[in-house]
Design a binder for these strands. Sequence first.
DNA 1: AAGCACTATGTCGTAGCACGATAGAATAAG
DNA 2: CTTATTCTATCGTGCTACGACATAGTGCTT
Lengths: 146, 146
Amino acid sequence: MGQVDARRFAAMAEFRYELRRFLHFSETSAEAQGISAQQYQLMQVVQATSAEARVSISTIAERMVLRHNSAVELVDRAERLGLVERLADEDDLRRSLVVLTEHGRKVLAHVAAAHLVELERAGPMMVQALERLGVSEASKRGTEAK
Amino acid sequence: MGQVDARRFAAMAEFRYELRRFLHFSETSAEAQGISAQQYQLMQVVQATSAEARVSISTIAERMVLRHNSAVELVDRAERLGLVERLADEDDLRRSLVVLTEHGRKVLAHVAAAHLVELERAGPMMVQALERLGVSEASKRGTEAK
DNA sequence: AAGCACTATGTCGTAGCACGATAGAATAAG
DNA sequence: CTTATTCTATCGTGCTACGACATAGTGCTT
C-alpha cells in the first residue's frame, strides 16, 4: 500500500473539495437554464468534438465517459427537451449523428459563459491544490519526497 | 451568445473531459476496494477536516457539498460497511461525531494512494487546460510548496 | 422555569440516472 | 451468402440525493 504523507493527503482533500463545489455549481447553473449538468456537458461535447458539430452516439459515450446505452438515454432526454436532434448518417445507416438545435446552442452559450466565470474562481484554487500535491506539471515521475 | 470564444470553449471542454475521466477512475478505483467514490470522499473529509478526525454530520454535509439528510444517509451506509463509527458528542448531545474505524483507515490509505498515482497523469492535463482557459493565475512560482 | 426559537440529526417516499442484459439492423469479413 | 462485428435502441434494476417531515437537545427570553 503506497503511503500518502499528510501534506499531500490534505492537498488531495482540498482539491477534491473544490471539485465538488465546482460540480455543484455546474449542476445549479445548468438547472437555472432548465437543463441538467449532464445535458450541458453533452452539448459541450457535441459542439467541441467535431468541426461540423455532428457526433455519433459512440463518440458521445466515449467523450462523456459513459456506456453506449447511457449515452443513448442522455441523448433521448436532451432531444425531448429540444436541445439536440438526431440525423441519420448517410454513409453508415446504423449511426445517428447528434447535432445541436438553435435552442440548444443558445442554452449552451449561457451555461458555458456562467461556467467560465465560476472557473475564474475555482480554477486557481484547483491549480494551487494540484501544485501542493506536486502533480501540476508533467514529468513528475518518481519525484517522491517523504 | 458568443461570450466564450472558440479557443476557451475548447479548453473548457477539454478540462471537463479530464474531469470526467478522473471521476470515473475515482469510482472504479474505490469500487476495487469495495466502496463507492462517495464513501472514499467521506473518509477523506473525516481524516482531513479535523485534527482529531472527529467530524459532525453538519460539517460532513458542508464539506461533501450535500444536504444534511444526504450526509446522514452517506454515513449510514459507510457505518454499515464498517468504514466509520458514530460517537456521541458529550458537549452537545444532538451531535454525532464520525470517526474512521481501523478498517476504514486501511481502505482509505489504499484508495488515496491509487488516486495520487492517477493524479500524476490527470493533474498536468487539467492544469494545462485551465492555463489555456486563462484561469490558472494562482500558479505563480513562489506559492509552490517546499 | 416555562415557553419559544433554533440547531442537529434522523426517517421516509420519490425521482433521476447509469448500468447490465438483451435485441435488432447495418456493415464488414470470410 | 453466411457469419461476425459494430452501432443504436429498449427495458428492468439498483443506488443515491433530495424535499418534506419528525424528534431531540440547546439556549435565549420573559
